[in-house]
C-alpha cells in the first residue's frame, strides 16, 4: 500500500476561477486554498516518488537550457522526460489519474511550467497545469512522464529523446488513437523524428485512418515502422 496526493475536481475549479493565476506571470498557484482540495489516495501497488532528485535535475536543466529559445525548450523536455519517468515510479493506473499530475504541477513543478510555457502568446498555460482526464499531453508533467513511459525501450530512452525533439510527435503519440501502445509509439518516434510538421500530420492522419481496419495491438514495432514508412512514401 502506498499513498499519493491528488487534486480534487473542486481544486481544479478553484484554479480555473482564479483571476490572477496563471494569467499573471507573477502570480503563484493559490496553494493555501488548494491545500483543502488535496486528497490522499491509497493505492495497492508500490509508488516511489524521488522528488528531491527530480527537483535537482529540474534546477540543473533550467540552468543549462535557455527557455527563451524554441529549440532549447524542446531540448529541455527531451532532457527531463526520462528523469521524470525514473523518479516518479508509479504504475500506469496511478499515472492515469489526472489529479495526481495536477497536484505535482501545482505544488511541485510550477516554476518549471512557468519557465517552459509562461508568457508566450497563444499558449494556454492553465492547460499545462491542469490538463484533462481525457488526454495525456496537456498537463506538462503528465506529458513528460507519459512520453517517456510510452517510448522507453526497456534499456534506453533514445526513442524518448527523439519523440520530444518534435512536439507534434508528442501530441500524436499521447493521443488516444495510439492506445498507449508502446511498440507503435516507439516506431512513430523512430520513423518521423526528423520530418517536417506537415509530413508528420499527413502520416499521422493516414495512420489513424488505417486503424479503423487494423488492430494496432496485433502489430509489432517493426510492422508499425514498415507501415509508417510506406505511408510516408505515399504522402510524400
Amino acid at each position: 500500500m502506498s499513498e499519493i496526493s491528488v487534486l480534487s475536481e473542486a481544486g481544479r475549479d478553484l484554479v480555473v476561477e482564479d483571476d490572477a493565476f496563471p494569467s499573471d506571470p507573477e502570480a503563484d498557484p493559490p496553494r493555501e486554498e488548494l491545500e483543502r482540495h488535496v486528497q490522499t489516495l491509497e493505492v495497492a501497488s508500490d509508488v516511489e516518488l524521488d522528488l528531491a532528485r527530480l527537483h535537482e535535475a529540474v534546477e540543473r536543466a533550467l540552468g543549462v537550457f535557455d527557455t527563451g529559445r524554441q529549440e532549447q525548450r524542446t531540448s529541455l523536455d527531451s532532457a527531463l522526460a526520462p528523469v521524470f519517468h525514473q523518479c516518479l515510479d508509479v504504475p500506469t493506473r496511478v499515472a492515469s489519474h489526472i489529479g495526481f499530475w495536477q497536484y505535482l504541477a501545482l505544488f511541485e513543478f510550477s516554476h518549471l511550467i512557468d519557465a517552459r510555457w509562461g508568457g508566450r502568446d497563444g499558449i494556454d498555460v492553465e492547460e499545462k497545469y491542469l490538463g484533462t482526464q481525457k488526454d495525456l499531453y496537456s498537463n506538462h508533467v503528465a506529458r513528460l512522464w507519459w512520453g517517456a513511459e510510452l517510448t522507453f525501450d526497456g534499456d534506453d530512452y533514445l526513442a524518448t529523446h527523439r519523440l520530444f525533439e518534435r512536439q507534434r510527435l508528442v501530441n500524436y503519440v499521447l493521443d488516444s488513437s495510439f492506445r498507449r501502445y508502446r511498440p507503435a509509439a516507439i516506431a512513430f518516434a523512430e520513423t518521423l523524428w526528423t520530418e517536417q510538421s506537415s509530413t508528420i500530420d499527413a502520416v499521422a492522419s493516414r495512420f489513424n485512418d488505417s486503424l479503423s481496419t487494423i488492430q494496432l495491438e496485433t502489430r509489432s514495432r517493426t510492422e508499425v515502422r514498415n507501415q509508417l514508412e510506406k505511408i510516408r512514401e505515399h504522402v510524400g
Binding site: 492522419s205 495512420f207 485512418d209 488505417s210 481496419t213 487494423i214 507501415q227 505515399h234
Partner: peptide, 11 residues
C-alpha cells in the same frame, strides 16, 4: 493489402 496499410481503405 497495401491500401489497408496506407489507410486508404477504412471503415
Amino acid at each position: 493489402s497495401e491500401a489497408f496499410e496506407l489507410g486508404l481503405i477504412t471503415q
